[in-house]
Each structure stands twice: as C-alpha cells, then as structure tokens.
Amino acid sequence: MIAVFLKLALGVLAVAAAARFFAYPRPRGRYCYLSRCAVAFAEAASDVLFPPGGEPVYSGREVGIPDFFERYFAALPRRTRVLFQALFCLFEHATLFFPAPGHLGWRRFSSLSPEQREAAIQSWHASRLYTRWLAFSSLAALFSIAYVSHPAVLRQLGLAPRATRTPIARADLLYPPIGRGPEAIAYTEADLTPPSDGTPLRVDAPLHPAFAEGFVRAPERIS
C-alpha cells in the first residue's frame, strides 16, 4: 500500500515538475534562439521592468523585447547564448527558493500575478546578497539594452542615429562586404569622394533611415 502511494506521489511530482519546467504555451512569434521558457519569462518581466505609463511612453511589452533578444542571441557566441538562457531560466524558476508573497508564490515567474512579479523583482533588486544583486543587474542590463534599442524609444529620447554621407575612401576599393568576394567591391578609383570636412553634425539632421520608421508597434508620440 505504501509503495503504491509513494509511486503515485512520485508520479504527481514528476508531472508537476514537467509542467513547471517544460509546459509553456507556443509563443506568438517564431523564435529560433529563445526557448519557450525564455520567451515567457522575457514577456512577463518586460511588464515589470518597463511598465506602461510615464516617459518613454512605450511599455516593455509594446516594444517586443523578446524579438530583440532573438536578434541579439543570434549574433552572440553559443557559450554566451547558453549563459543568458540559463539566466532567464534562473529567474523564471527562482520562485521555488525565493517565493513571491501571496497565494501560490512559488509558481514560475511567468505564471505569477502582476503584483507578485513586481514583488519578486523587487526582492532581487533590493537584495543585500552580492551574487543576487549581480544576477539582477545583469538581467536588468539585458532588458534595458533591448528596450532602448527599439527605434521608437530612441526617437522619443532624441537619441536615434542621424543620416550622414559616408565618404568613399581608398580602403573601400580593397574590402568587399563581409561574406562576399572581391567581385562585390562596388567602387573604383572614379568613385572616390572627398573625405569628411569636419562639419559638425546638427541636432536637426535627418534621422538614419533605419531609425526613422519601421519596427514600430505603438503609436508615435515623439515629444
């Protein structure tokens, strides 16, 4: 009888563990470099780290932080990518050891209520434990990078890169774009242009096209 009960209990525990660690809904976007766990955590944490309201007007969820992580992780070496995934996983499941206040505060981070998520993040932020603080600082840094990378946020801050005329230097006759061969060198001696004359870039210079529009989900409200 005891053996049956133990087996049953173990089975329930295994199902609970599997549900906790593996059962995530399919994300809205298509992600190759982010696990479902990482996407769920990133979306949930976006709301706490960059809530709606105040300036800048965009919330973390509006700017699509997981989309940026997908691009960023794709550019990172595998080892670093794995470390970042592990960091997200740590925060997602750390509620087992540092439960959020309130009912069922031990659930994974992305399953907590908004108030519980806020409290969980606050406990990391205010921790006097150096390693906990370091982990939180790393996480907040990653999310801040993602948030401020959004063209709409940069535009609102007035910090979007400006368009500029890039002179064609003699060195441009030597190097093809990365991944291409010398046949892709687009310039000849005849294309050389005078070097930069040192005219300071003006505050009212037009924005770089990549930052002037695109990748915008929220209505533009540039102050």
Binding site: V48, L49, F50, P51, G53, G54, E55, P56, E118, I121, H125, A140, A141, L142, S144, I145, A146, Y147, V148, S149, V153, L154, L157, G158, L159
Partner: peptide, 24 residues
C-alpha cells in the same frame, strides 16, 4: 551607444524609465 549606457542605469520599473527618459 544609448542601449549600452542604459544598461548601466540602476533600478527597474518607473524609476528606470524615468532615468532612460533623461538620457538627453
């Protein structure tokens, strides 16, 4: 670049957003 500077700003939530808004 602003995203890298923002990475060094402390805090989270409204306080962090306010600091980001003041980057200019």
């Amino acid at each position: 670049p602003p995203p890298l500077l923002a990475a060094r700003l402390p805090g989270y939530g409204r306080a962090l957003k306010r600091r980001i808004a003041e980057l200019s």
